[in-house]
């Protein structure tokens, strides 16, 4: 394996790790807090209803936004660190 392949592989592994973490958060706030785990959060009241309702109607959208910008920032940094960015 050439030096270049090793770099590319490390870059790809780092990317996959980042994707996994992001998708776990993505699923947790929407399918988790918003739907399946909602009964567990019912004790936390938010404006006449509970936290799960808030996650289902607003919270998850805000987290999605944060996730995409975080990923873009982190990946563009990874590109430069591994020397695979666009010149």
């Amino acid at each position: 394996m050439s030096q270049q392949d090793v770099t590319k592989n490390a870059y790809w592994q780092a990317n996959l790790r980042l994707i996994k973490i992001s998708l776990v958060i993505w699923a947790l706030v929407s399918f988790g807090f918003g739907i399946v785990l909602r009964p567990l959060l019912s004790g936390i009241r938010v404006g006449g209803t509970d936290l799960g309702f808030w996650f289902a109607q607003q919270g998850s959208i805000i987290v999605f936004l944060a996730l995409i910008f975080f990923y873009a920032w982190r990946m563009n940094k990874l590109d430069r660190e591994h020397g695979v960015d666009e010149e």
Binding site: S22, G34, F64
Partner: peptide
Amino acid sequence: SSFLMGWTGGYV
């Protein structure tokens, strides 16, 4: 709420 989460979560 599925519409709200579904049509935004896809962008992730």
